[in-house]
Design a binder for these strands. Structure first.
Lengths: 157, 157
DNA sequence: AGAAGGTACGTTATACTGTAGCATTCATGG
DNA sequence: CCATGAATGCTACAGTATAACGTACCTTCT
C-alpha cells in the first residue's frame, strides 16, 4: 500500500542527516533499508537477523544503537504495543504520528492527524504537563480484515 | 494526589465483579491492592515481589494471570511504554484512558479526555478501521518537575 | 604527519519481560 | 459425592533490552 521505494527513503534520509550534521553510517542506512523494504513492523531481532553479514551474526546492541539513532532523527518509529519498529513515511517534517495496528493481519497505517495531536497536547498542557514523546496506537481490525471475516463478530471463538 | 484508598478501590472492584459474575479471588484482589496502594506504575516482577507469601516467591505466570484478569475487567491499565501497570481510577464505567507519564519523577496521571478519544476514533473509522484497544500515552515532564528543574533546560548534562 | 578527543562499532554477559505447557487444587452445580 | 470447569503452582524457556568495556575510526587542531 504505502510502501515507498527504499532507495527513495534512503536518499531522503541521507539529505536530512547531512543537513543536520549527523552521520548516516552504513549500518544505520542498512537498518533503515531493511525497515523500509519490509513494509511491516519488524522486531529488533528480526532486523538483526536480516543484517547478518556473510555468516556472522551481529550482537543485539548493534541494532539497538542504530535504531536509537534512527528514532532520534525521526526516520523510524517504535510501536510500543508490538515491541517493533517501522520506517517513517514522512521524515522531512518531524511531527506526532498515530498508528492503526491490525491485530489480524499485522498491517500498520501511520496517521498524522492534527485533531488527535492537538487534543492530546492541549489536554497535557491543561495539567501543566510538558509533552515530549507521544505514544498513540490503536489496535483493532483494518478495513480489509473487517470485510473478510469481521462482518459478524458474534461467532468468534 | 489521586491516590484513592485501596480499600475503597477493592470494595468497588468487588461489587463490579459480583455484578458481572466473575470471581475476584484473593490473589487477584491482592494484586489490585498492591497496585492501588503503590500510587505509581509497577512492573509485573515488582508486583510479584510484593506478593511473596512468607518466604515463598511465586512464579511469573501467577502475576501475569491475575493482571490479565484485572485488565479484562478494566480494573487496571497497562502502560505499554513503561512495561508497567497501574490501577484504574474509575473502573465503574469502562472507557478509553490516556496517560501522562513524567520521565523525571515517574508519576502517572490518568486522563479521560473525550476530545482525544473521539478524534482517535473518528480518524480510525475514516480509514475503515475498527478500533478495539487504544494506547495513548504522553511521555514528558509533569508540572512539578518542570517547575523544579525545567525552567532552563539548556544546562542539562 | 602526528596527537587528541569524540563518535561509532564489536562483543560478552546479563537483566528484564512475558508465555507455553502441564499437573494440581479449588469452587460449583448436578 | 462426583463431574466439570476455573483458578493456581510450577518448570522451563522465549523474547526484549541494556550495562560495560575495549577497539576502531573519523575529525580537527597543531
Amino acid at each position: 500500500m504505502d510502501v515507498i521505494p527504499p532507495q527513495q527513503v534512503v536518499a531522503q534520509a541521507e539529505a536530512l542527516c547531512h543537513r543536520r550534521g549527523v552521520r548516516l553510517t552504513a549500518q544505520r542506512r542498512q537498518v533503515l533499508e531493511i525497515l523500509s523494504g519490509a513494509g511491516r513492523p519488524l522486531g529488533a531481532y528480526e532486523i538483526l537477523g536480516a543484517m547478518r553479514d556473510g555468516s556472522r551474526l551481529l550482537a543485539p546492541p548493534t541494532v539497538y544503537r542504530a535504531l536509537d539513532f534512527l528514532l532520534q532523527q525521526g526516520l523510524v518509529h517504535k510501536l510500543e504495543s508490538l515491541h517493533a519498529f517501522v520506517g517513517c513515511n514522512h521524515p522531512e517534517h518531524p511531527h506526532f504520528s498515530q498508528f492503526l495496528i491490525c491485530a489480524d493481519c499485522g498491517q500498520v497505517t501511520e496517521l498524522e492527524d492534527a485533531a488527535i495531536s492537538q487534543s492530546l497536547a492541549s489536554a497535557a498542557s491543561e495539567s501543566g504537563f510538558r509533552p515530549q514523546r507521544p505514544v498513540v496506537e490503536m489496535i483493532g481490525t483494518c478495513a480489509e480484515c473487517a470485510g473478510k471475516a469481521g462482518l459478524d463478530p458474534s461467532d468468534e471463538t
